[in-house]
Amino acid sequence: MAGAQADVWEDKAQISEVLIRYATGIDRRDWELFRSIWADDAVSDYGRGFRFHGPDEVTEYMIETHRPMGATQHRMTNMVIEVDGDRATARTYAHVVLMVDKNDPTAWMDVIAHYDDVFVRTPDGWRISERKARQSRRLTSG
């Protein structure tokens, strides 16, 4: 890939990797990996009053909420990324399948959601500075 265009495709590839890292971090319960995607002043809004400031708050919330769960998958698709210098925006679809009770293999939640993100380029790579998560459909086993 040639010249300035190559830089944009490289930026999109790196941003895609950060988006997947969100899923890998939660789904493997690798909280250092999960924490590494957020800018220091990141604001994340998961709706219904669940808003977090900074990487530590959102990480602590994710640790607690996933603690009782079995396996989970955050299946990320449809990454639509626009890069503008050291800033980027992205909309990503997520199909989240959660086995909500590690002691009950019949208990699950299935969420169709999307994330609207603002990314900033930092010395450590692209980081999420704002996230808004919204759900379109939620199914539960019982």
Binding site: R75, T77, N78, Y93, H95, I112, H114, S136, R137
Partner: peptide, 9 residues
């Protein structure tokens, strides 16, 4: 329709 999500992979 309300929300639609065509998830591609």
């Amino acid at each position: 329709m309300g929300d639609t999500r065509h998830q591609l992979s």
